[in-house]
Write a protein that binds this DNA or RNA. Sequence first.
RNA 1: GCCCUGGUGGUGAAAUGGUAGACACGCAGGACUUAAAAUCCUGUAGGCAGCAAUGCCUGUGCGGGUUCAAGUCCCGCCCGGGGUACCA
Length: 915
Amino acid sequence: AGLHVGHPLGYIATDIYARFKRLKGFNVLNPMGYDSFGLPAEQYAIQTGTHPAITTENNIARYREQLDNIGFSFDWSREVRTSDPSFYKWTQWIFMQLFNHYYDKTADKAVKISDLVERLKTEGNANINAVCDEDTPSVSAAEWNAWSEKEQQLFLLKYRLTFPEESFVNWCAQLGTVLSNDEVKDGVSERGGYPVERKLMKQWSMRITAYADRLIEGLNHVEWSESLKEQQRNWIGRSQGASVKFPLAPLTPKGGDTQVPPLGAEGAYIEVFTTRVDTIYGVTFMVLAPEHEYVKDLTTKEQKEEIEAYQSWAASRSDVDRMSEVKKVTGAFTGSYCVNPFNGEKIPIYIADYVLAGYGTGAVMAVPSGDQRDWNFAKHFNLPIISILDGQKDIETAADNTKEGRYINSGIINGMEYKEATNTLISWLEERGLGKGKIQYRLRNAVFSRQRYWGEPVPAYWKDGVPYLIEESELPLVLPKIDKYLPTETGEPPLGRAENWKYSPSQPPQKGGEQNSPALEGSGEAYEYELSTMPGWAGSSWYFYRYMDAHNDATFASKEAVDYWQQVDLYVGGTEHAVGHLLYSRFWNLFMYDLGLVPHTEYAKKLVNQGMIQGRSLYLKLNTGRRLFVDVNLADERDRLYRDVFLQMIEKDNRFEGIKGDEVGGDIDWEKDENGKYYTALTPEVEKMSKRTLNVVNPDDVVAKYGADCFRMYEMFLGPLEDSKPWSTTGITGVQSFLRKLWSLFYDLNTGKNLLTDGEPTPEELKVLHACIKKVSTDIENFSFNTAVSGFMICVNELKSMRCSKRLILNELVVLVAPFAPFIAEELWEALGHITSVLDAQYPTHNEEYLKESEVLYPISINGKKRGEYTFAADASPADIEKVVRAMEVITKWSEGKDIKKVIVVPGRMVNVVI
RNA sequence: GCCCUGGUGGUGAAAUGGUAGACACGCAGGACUUAAAAUCCUGUAGGCAGCAAUGCCUGUGCGGGUUCAAGUCCCGCCCGGGGUACCA
């Protein structure tokens, strides 16, 4: 449907900034491109059979028209499209690099997998300190060398930065794709409302967790909003603590009849993760998640009924339920016990849904004296609460999570303070193999497969159950043609429909243009390509580098180009990308940095989150209680819908089928206006602009009515860029009349006569101009565009009241306005007699001399010596001056021997002396 | 619950710790006009006093505090928006 007025907000801001910097003499790269893979075009293809590439092409043409209408200074020669093979060639290339590297913790960077292979050959993996799968076994050089090719390759997958693995996904059979948690609402897909099931699938995964620490650390070096950085930190969720094994007390009697060997046997244990191992002597019970795998075997006969009832109740509760009932304590006793390894205390084991199966080990050691949730639980189930710190408050009324004080009732750490105690306990655990210091992250590896058509093909094929990459020289691996954009009958992704979608080492795929792989005539081996495609975030994770060298066919961007442009100085986008795109792209950037491909650990120096422009939608409330959105353009300015308009509308709109609106007394209450015409009052609501709510405002319409300059300035004038605000044109006349006033400095609006004069500017005129230069420049640098617009208004109003049409003044003013209102600036620039474009002008700098407030300077004598000058406002009254002079006498007396740097006097206030 | 944000006129909003409400909308009054539109001018936080110029008082969600001086900084609350994971 095209862009709405909310979309250009950020583009206008960056365009103003780009033009401003260009006028200041910088070489500015202000690009635009399209992240053009994705589900909408694919859904449309499924419905209509139109190839997504065609839909994409049409939409881009539409966007381009709208963008051109607003006067952006984008460098279109650098335009990128993520769905273009010449672009995704490099997305695939980066994927291959990820496959060919692993994360070496000692070097703290990505290292070639071939280096790993060399080491495995000679020393096995005993000394390899790398990020890898949890279940990676140790292997000696001899074992490695004895392995088959397949065994070796499967082993290497445990290290590669991208690798296939079996994982649970939200599978929606009707959409034929995997959905994110976000796309699933109440067990059905958000789009279409189809059922969603948990299904185990082989998915490509990205080992982003390898970069968790560096992703956190890097946040300290970028100018991003605190809230955004905080969101990323929380998403990565680093917590430092320890894992502790609690041996199980002998089971008496055993409840379940399944056999999980470790349970009840010698050495069986429950492992927990804790950030407060120092409180371990305060542990009085253990809580497992209801879904914990041990629960069944831990439950005694007597408790079986209660536990099972609790488990099924917990399973029925949604996350929303769990969160809204934070204060209600629930749980059940399993009947079993474990043992505190430090003091041998017998600890009862409970289950409760405040412990989540998906985080840590799904088990918590409960310390009611130090944790409020544990405390509530202990009170509810009448469990003991032991104080373990002498600094702790009264633990009979509430828990106290302090770390202050010395430990009591705490065995080997009695008398110690926090740090020493923690270290002592961890060493104790590590010596006995009962636990260790551990850092836990919330961040999970990122699933990198989509069972869709409209995405980048993964440049890999399968041979004997092992994935191999195609040759780099064979890139791009172009999407094949398929007959329908749906999964195959056997449940394979859409690419499974492509004919001859196979890799043949002897006959590599042809390059350029959409095609299937060559027909595999006669001889030669052929292997199945990977059938899933890459997710939407693949192309968007590195595209900013492509702008630097958009047409390079030899590399993603030449070294010269990357060295020249370095990094993104200013990145404007919405907060919705906080933990998706903005995290993945930082991850890829760090990886590319490790490979020496890019010069910075962070690719975006400054990031600004623009707010959302919301729409005002209108509801029609029917007498039946139904609420229907009505196109905002059909209502009048008082939000009234007239009956004649309504009757026309319902003919075209099938949502109104069966609704009686053509007579009084039908489903709608009609009222008569002053002229006797029937209308009904609509109810307004503010929300996101969307097709569904029929509240979309097209920038083309605003531009047609007020002009692009006015539209640009008004969007800026609405308020701070970061704020969300509803769209409304009520104030646009203010900007419109500003532009008219600006014009009227050059031409008489009635006669069209040129008013320009050649006189020398007066000090007053210079002051007005230079105040404007100063204000507007600093406002742009601070991204305060709304106040910059105010600055223009003040300036023009003052020049107008001075009747100043002097070329020397207006010349500068036009350049100042040019970033905001490029069209009118160009015309006025020409009116001033310039033959070049205003784009080639130089941005003026202000001169403080012209901004001085006063004419009267009073020397101030301190300790008998002249120490400086004091400036009075020009309109200061003699009485005020006298007051100050008297004050200065007092100061002089008081300041003997002190070094006075500055004296500030505010009328009606105290005198401020800076020493 | 936790994290991040924000709370200022009728409205959108301004204010490096220094005369709160710039600028704009809206509204009211006036000028021009046969009239209207357009345009221009004046006024516009609240209260009290005054014929008036003007003067005084109160005001930035609530309660405290720091400071010569607080919308701004600190502490404790209340409410809105965004995020989230009851994360041990």
